[in-house]
């Protein structure tokens, strides 16, 4: 962490929450240093949103200690509220008002004062590229514009700790980039950001530290580089000419996965030249022709899939990350 001696912006120990019989958070611990981006990563239903809702005083925890901005969550919820800004997963704008009125509303509720509130509203409209639409009702805004306004509203009053719950869900690639830039500039100004996402590329791009949440427990925590080390060596992907060759190779190599349509096999390991050579030699001796070979250095996809071993996760997460990586 960057500032190990300054107090943490968020400190969570033994946080638990159940809804009826269903345990959503089963005792999680983490710390977020001031002025850093912390990303909570996890598949749908892992408990990410519940965590944000607890930390932002929306719902009470069942057990555990939480400090946000140096204030105890259960003891001084109003002090916590004064220190934070929240942009939830669902649009939290007043659709009957204009963009400008929404921002002035926030300024009034933050007790900033009329003139200063208006000035801040104008600044934010400019910064978020909404100046042209300032006097239009929000109901007429596009999804991306509503998202930007949503975040702009969170920034009125300059909160020092900001929660972003899947801030780029449903945004087009360009809007997602814009959002990333905004997050970057906020952190540069010393704001602490708590971000949930299921886009691995997003965590990789933005987060200083990442925690992987699965079934209500944190299964891993660290920097992106540290997490990638958890999946040693990435993997090798082999391409074959036809199904018979593929089948013979599969029998011989014990692949981690096999794609009969693409005629590829995926094997663990990768960077290690010696093991690679011996594998290729083996295939040679068996008379199996390899058409192509790709080396994959580990990325967060691998970490995610290795740590949150659900059969339903890959289909859901893969395409989005690949799309993000492709740009």
């Amino acid at each position: 962490m960057t500032n190990s001696h300054s107090p943490a912006a968020i400190r969570v120990t033994g946080l638990r929450k159940s809804f009826g019989q269903q345990v959503v958070l089963d005792g999680i611990d983490f710390e977020v240093a001031r002025g850093t981006v912390f990303s909570l990563l996890g598949p749908n239903g892992a408990g990410k949103t519940t965590t944000v809702q607890i930390l932002s005083t929306l719902i009470p925890a069942d057990a555990g200690q939480v400090q946000v901005g140096g204030h105890d969550l259960s003891g001084e919820p109003d002090a916590v509220r004064a220190a934070i800004g929240v942009t939830g997963q669902f649009s939290a704008v007043d659709k009957f008002l204009t963009g400008e009125e929404n921002l002035v509303l926030m300024a009034d509720l933050r007790h900033i004062g009329r003139r200063q509130g208006r000035r801040r509203a104008a600044e934010l409209l400019e910064q978020f590229d909404l100046a042209d639409a300032a006097r239009k009702p929000v109901a007429l805004y596009s999804g991306g514009m509503q998202r930007r306004l949503d975040l702009a509203m969170t920034l009125v009053g300059d909160p020092r700790i900001i929660f972003l719950d899947e801030p780029t869900a449903g945004l087009d690639p360009r809007s997602r980039r814009t959002m990333w830039q905004i997050v970057g500039s906020l952190v540069a100004s010393g704001v602490t950001i708590f971000l949930t996402t299921q886009y691995l590329a997003e965590a990789d791009e933005l987060a200083d530290r990442i925690a992987v949440l699965d079934h209500g427990t944190l299964v891993a925590q660290g920097t992106a580089a540290e997490l990638k080390r958890l999946v040693p060596g990435g993997h090798v992907s082999l391409q074959f000419g036809d199904a018979t060759v593929l089948a013979r190779a599969a029998q011989m190599l014990q692949p981690t996965s096999r794609d009969d349509d693409a005629l590829t096999l995926q094997l663990p390991g990768g960077g290690d030249v010696r093991s690679l050579r011996s594998m290729l030699d083996g295939l040679d001796q068996a008379g199996i022709e390899v058409d192509g070979l790709t080396l994959h250095t580990p990325d967060l996809d691998d970490v995610f899939l290795a740590l949150t071993g659900h059969p339903d996760v890959p289909q859901e997460t893969r395409p989005q990350t690949q799309e993000a990586n492709a740009r």
Partner: peptide
């Protein structure tokens, strides 16, 4: 049912 009240709840008002 809208999100704005959730926002109000997270604010010190």
């Amino acid at each position: 049912t809208g999100g704005i009240v959730a926002r109000f709840r997270t604010m010190s008002i």
